[in-house]
Amino acid sequence: MKVLVTGAGRDTGRLLALAFAARGAHVLATARTLAAAEETAALIRTAGGTAESAVLDLADPASIAALEVDRLDVLVNSGARYLGDTAGPEDIADTIAGAATGTVLLTERLLPLLRASKAADIVNLISAAGEPGQHRSEAHAAFYAAKHAQAGYAEILSERLRPEGIRVISLFPPDFVQDGPRETGAELTAQAVVECVLFAVNQPRDCFIRSLHFEQTQHFEQRAPRP
């Protein structure tokens, strides 16, 4: 199995790349800088897995067009810039270009390779910010806009690709932490999200899990509303 992970240079994207490699996949780790991508690939190789690295800036169509991929079984769209409360015009444009336009352009470019696979999956790490009517993330409104666009694309893509046997799996986690206790009442961790991805991908091919949604922690729900 060959897996391409976007945003694999750090945090959740890196955890996803390491997790797939640990289960025997050959991973193409991509990131905005070659150094970050290669660091992830080196970690995989040190652990006994196989990996390669490549530069991929989802906010730049030319970078997407220049990416070299010979075959592919699983595309993991995890690269997206989080945007907090304070953001300027360039930050907003970059976030929407990467999470929305970039994800669509990359997926469309790689569809012929996925169609050639006998067991293809497209995994989208979206966000609760992409759920209709949800306001559970404290992210900037532009992040919500980008994630709603990503969710809309994934929804119709799942419907159209299912007859071909290609699964489109989308996850809608709330804001989560990279590390923390794995216990009831604690905030969702990146490792938990990674394990949900692996669970969905490892299901038999007759099982099409279109989306995974998460309950928010009580800690978040009980925060005082902003004035």
Score class of each variant (00 low, 15 high):
Gln218Thr: 05
Val177Gly: 01
Ala41Met: 09
Asp175Trp: 07
Glu38Lys: 15
Arg223His: 08
Tyr153Gly: 01
Gly9Pro: 14
Thr50Asn: 12
Ala145Glu: 03
Asp94Asn: 12
Leu114Phe: 07
Ala99Leu: 12
Ala59Pro: 06
Thr50Phe: 00
Val27Lys: 08
Ala142Pro: 13
Val55Glu: 00
Thr50Glu: 11
Ala146Asn: 09
Ala192Leu: 08
Leu212Glu: 04
Gln178Arg: 12
Ala37Phe: 08
Lys118Gly: 07
Val193Pro: 12
His213Cys: 13
Leu114Gln: 04
Val5Thr: 06
Gly98Trp: 09
Ile44Gly: 13
Arg205Tyr: 02
Ala119Gln: 06
Gln203Ser: 08
His213Leu: 13
Glu159Asn: 03
Ile209Glu: 04
Ser137Trp: 04
Ala128Glu: 05
Thr107Trp: 02
Leu43Tyr: 04
Arg205Thr: 02
Ala19Tyr: 11
Val5Leu: 12
Ala200Met: 11
Val193Asn: 08
Val3Phe: 00
Asn77Asp: 11
Thr46Phe: 15
Leu111Tyr: 12
Arg162Asn: 04
Ala141Asn: 09
Lys2Asn: 11
Thr217Gln: 11
Gln216Gly: 04
Arg205Met: 03
Ala66Gly: 05
Val27Leu: 01
Arg71Ser: 15
Gln178Leu: 15
Thr6Arg: 01
Val27Cys: 03
Leu75Asp: 00
Ala190Arg: 03
Asp91Arg: 05
Glu221Ile: 14
Lys118Val: 01
Asp70Met: 07
Ser137Gly: 13
Val3Asp: 01
Arg23Gln: 14
Pro112Lys: 14
His26Glu: 11
Ala192Glu: 05
Val197Ala: 00
Val69Met: 03
Asn202Tyr: 10
His213Phe: 15
Val197Glu: 00
Val74Phe: 01
Glu138Asp: 14
Arg109Met: 08
Leu111Asp: 12
Ile122Glu: 05
Phe143Tyr: 15
Thr33Leu: 04
Leu113Glu: 09
Leu105Val: 06
Ala119Tyr: 05
Gly180Arg: 00
Val194Glu: 13
Pro163Arg: 07
Val55Gly: 09
Asp57Trp: 03
Phe172Gln: 00
Ala151His: 03
